[in-house]
Write a protein that binds this DNA or RNA. Structure first.
Lengths: 202, 202
DNA sequence: ACACAATCAACCGATTCGGTCAAGACTTTT
DNA sequence: AAAAGTCTTGACCGAATCGGTTGATTGTGT
């Protein structure tokens, strides 16, 4: 493992992103180290040189992602924001900044959360031991938000459901696009939120 | 192939659904016939007995899905509906009825549309020869709809984008749930559309 | 009892798997 | 410039799995 951490950061990121993407798309079992190596433009032997085993690589990635999300999203979140749409916009922005560094963290941890292969099942259980079913982003945005501003005939629960679907669909479009597209996509999402506020609030 | 078509329909569906699901999730190359067989509860040899080769099975599934979508969604669509939300609701209902028969048609044809494995690439190109990038559902719902009813400060393009994301996210939740959940999910989606109409129209 | 179709465990050669290793290529030290 | 260390990889290992076959077993209709 020290072998890997002594690499120049850009090369580290190249390998990490290739591994995150491949694991995210194909899952643990169906991902081969050759897949990752050729996607990262290095030889298979190097991956084993850096990480030892496939399992060690996977566990390293999960821990890295959990750590990144914790420090880059959870800790930076501003709990004093009460407006629901502001909360959503803010968590989305934080998540997007993280995806600028590693575009596949999001889809990788989601796939890891549901990974069930015997070889890594136990480790994942201890890593994910805390937390219910909901995404971190959702929990943050919805808990403690102010729902009193909605029109009387607008069901906040329905709006939550809708936003849930929207962010799911829009996040899936975000995975693996360039940084400029990422910004553009976020601007459209922001417009959506503005539209909601204009028309669903009293 | 006749071997397969002489099976009782329920058993056919069992095998078809197992194959659609496995191919949809893992893609052509990473799906093994053993995966499909054990998911369908039969032996690997039977799959080859019914379909000859992996490729033949895959091509059969693609053609079946394209056919189903054509007869169950495209042909049944009512072009005389002009209201955008009615069009969306109607196409969603049609698509949902199809998914009650085969829950993975939708995700399977999407994955097939982007499949790039050398073994099936050519066949797919001829099957999908017609049609641009957009989903059939999207094309149907948006082309020829009436956009004049929106409030002046509501951008129809933005609404389209939003609905695109919503249906993407909500379809991904639909893949592989029971029939009753399917109905419930659809009812929530319908509520969304009503909400939009109430608040975005003049 | 017999013919015949359905079914599958066991098997085939080929490929790919996770993982290793000896030998280049490249730096650094002397 | 030679020696010593570091990176990197192609070739390789046994084991597993791949797509596909087959011989034997089961069941079914007559």
């Amino acid at each position: 493992m020290e072998k890997f951490l002594n690499l120049p950061v850009e090369k580290q990121n190249l390998i990490i992103d290739a591994a995150l993407k491949t694991f995210a798309v194909h899952g643990y079992k169906k991902t081969s180290i050759s897949d990752i190596a050729s996607s990262a433009g290095i030889s298979k032997a190097m991956v084993f040189h850096y990480f030892g085993t496939k399992k060690e690589l996977y566990v390293y990635l999960v821990n890295m992602c959990v750590g990144s999300i914790s420090t880059e999203v959870v800790e930076k979140f501003d709990e004093s924001i009460t407006d629901l749409f502001d909360r959503i916009a803010y968590t989305s922005k934080l998540k997007m900044n993280l995806m600028k560094k590693h575009p596949y963290v999001s889809s990788f941890i989601q796939s890891a959360y549901f990974e069930n292969d015997d070889e890594v099942k136990e480790e994942l259980k201890t890593i994910f031991s805390k937390g219910d079913g909901r995404t971190i982003g959702k929990k943050m945005a919805f808990d403690g938000a102010d729902f009193s501003k909605f029109k009387d005939d607008v069901d906040p629960n329905l709006v939550m459901n809708m936003i849930d679907w929207i962010s799911e669909g829009y996040m899936s479009k975000m995975a693996g696009v360039g940084e400029s597209d990422l910004d553009e996509l976020y601007k459209v999402f922001e417009e959506c939120l503005k539209l909601f506020r204009r028309n669903f609030y009293k």
